[in-house]
Simulated assay, not measured.
Amino acid sequence: MKAINETISFIKEQYNTENFIPLHVPHFGGNEKKYLLETIDSTFVSSVGAYVDQFEMMMQNITGTKKAVAVVNGTAAIQVSLRLIGVKAGDEVLTQALTFVATANAIAYQNATPVFLDVDLDTMGLSPDAVALFLQEFGDLREDGCYNKKTGKRISACLPMHTFGFPVHLDELIEICNSWKIPVLEDAAESLGSKYKGKPTGSFGKLSAFSFNGNKIVTCGGGGAIVTNDSELGEKGKYLTTTAKIPHLYEYVHDEMGYNFRMPNLNAALACAQLEQLDDFLTNKRRLATEYKSFFASNGIKFRTETPNTEANYWLMCVELENKIERDLFLKSTNENSVMTRPIWQLMYRLPMYVDCQRDRQINAEFLEERIVNIPSSVR
């Protein structure tokens, strides 16, 4: 209990307040108001406008990819990316159960089924070893792809999520998936600014999806992005998210089912102003993470840090408690003292809509589920 009380005092000192301290709040200290007013004055407030184009170009530069597509949110980005990568109704997608529900929901939106595999303890993201073991037991490699021996369904994608901005072991995962003809789609919703072996997350998969929700490191209220190095797929993504409308001066012709998933210019204006400050956000978060690491080390609590050869954006920082009893006490004490903390997500196969999905033993995921707690991580 002493360590928890000291934690509460330390966090209040960091944020210099005795008032309620949220988990993660946006910081608007740049050109947000200026760009929003410019957008209003231009009258281009919907999905056509200069800031949409600028946002897409900025995302290409930040992620080092050839094409970015602005969309309404991260879930939509994953859903459309799954379609682009070839996921069809009745297919299966390998992913992790330790994730936010949007990852699994996006798969279900494509009328596909998630297969939940374990995570690594160090990254908290999809484990290459777990994927390899699953495919050795259930994989059936055919000319047209990989199939699940147990269900007979095609495994048409692998969807790892970079948990809290900590990159998964991408090289190993992609090598395994390539050997089984399974394309990789990165759920990079939480990892804007993170790097794996010097390269940005989101630049490794066939496609990748980002989120700009209100609690993300960069926000525009809502918003998402698809990025890819396959220019043809990127153009297809832009087309599908723009209601699959064939360009024409005045006619409305739609030649396949598309989505009205376009990011409004108003949101894009906000996003551009936020992206201009990304480097400062990352610097401030790394400074806070360093202070947390030193404090928790002296109090016998494990603070989660980045793995070798990676740079995490430290979007949501977290501690690992000894067991579920300690975790629950930590959660209760901090929240009752106006310091917002929260547990990691409930594993997806515990949710009623995914309870029947195939999964492995989930040893690491269940260990983490009982111990990980997010602590205040706002840019200061």
Rank of each mutant, 00 (worst) to 15 (best):
I174P: 03
I176Q: 08
C177L: 05
C177K: 03
N178Y: 04
S179E: 13
S179Q: 13
I182V: 13
P183R: 05
V184C: 10
E186L: 01
E186P: 01
E186H: 01
E186G: 01
D187F: 04
A189D: 10
S191C: 09
S191T: 02
L192Y: 05
G193W: 09
S194R: 07
K195G: 05
Y196D: 02
Y196L: 03
K197M: 14
K197V: 06
K197W: 07
G198T: 11
G198S: 10
G202E: 04
G202Y: 05
G202M: 05
S203T: 02
L207H: 12
L207Y: 11
S208T: 03
F210H: 12
S211G: 04
S211E: 03
N213M: 10
N213D: 15
G214A: 12
K216F: 11
V218E: 06
T219Y: 08
C220E: 09
C220D: 04
C220L: 03
G222N: 14
G223T: 05
G223E: 08
G223M: 07
G224V: 01
G224M: 01
I226F: 05
I226D: 07
T228Y: 07
T228A: 09
T228E: 06
D230P: 08
D230C: 13
S231G: 10
E232W: 07
E232T: 15
E232Y: 11
L233N: 01
G234I: 09
G234W: 09
K236D: 09
G237Q: 02
G237N: 02
G237F: 02
G237V: 02
G237I: 03
K238Y: 14
Y239D: 10
T241R: 04
T242H: 15
T242G: 14
T243V: 15
A244W: 11
I246F: 12
P247H: 11
H248D: 15
H248L: 08
Y250I: 12
E251V: 09
E251A: 15
E251T: 13
Y252W: 08
V253Y: 14
V253H: 13
D255F: 09
E256R: 11
M257P: 08
M257A: 11
G258A: 07
Y259E: 10
Y259I: 07
Y259G: 06
Y259H: 14
N260Q: 11
N260R: 10
F261I: 01
F261W: 02
R262H: 06
M263W: 02
M263G: 04
M263E: 06
P264F: 03
P264L: 04
N265E: 07
N265G: 09
N265I: 07
N265C: 12
L266S: 15
N267I: 07
N267F: 13
A268D: 03
A269R: 01
L270E: 10
L270R: 10
A271Q: 02
E276Q: 07
Q277W: 06
L278I: 15
L278P: 12
L278G: 14
L278W: 09
D280C: 08
D280P: 05
T283Y: 10
T283V: 11
N284Y: 09
N284P: 03
K285P: 07
R286I: 08
L288N: 00
L288R: 01
A289I: 00
A289C: 00
E291R: 14
Y292E: 06
Y292T: 07
F295L: 02
F296G: 00
F296T: 00
F296H: 01
F296P: 00
S298M: 04
N299L: 00
G300Y: 01
I301L: 00
I301Q: 00
K302F: 12
K302W: 03
K302C: 10
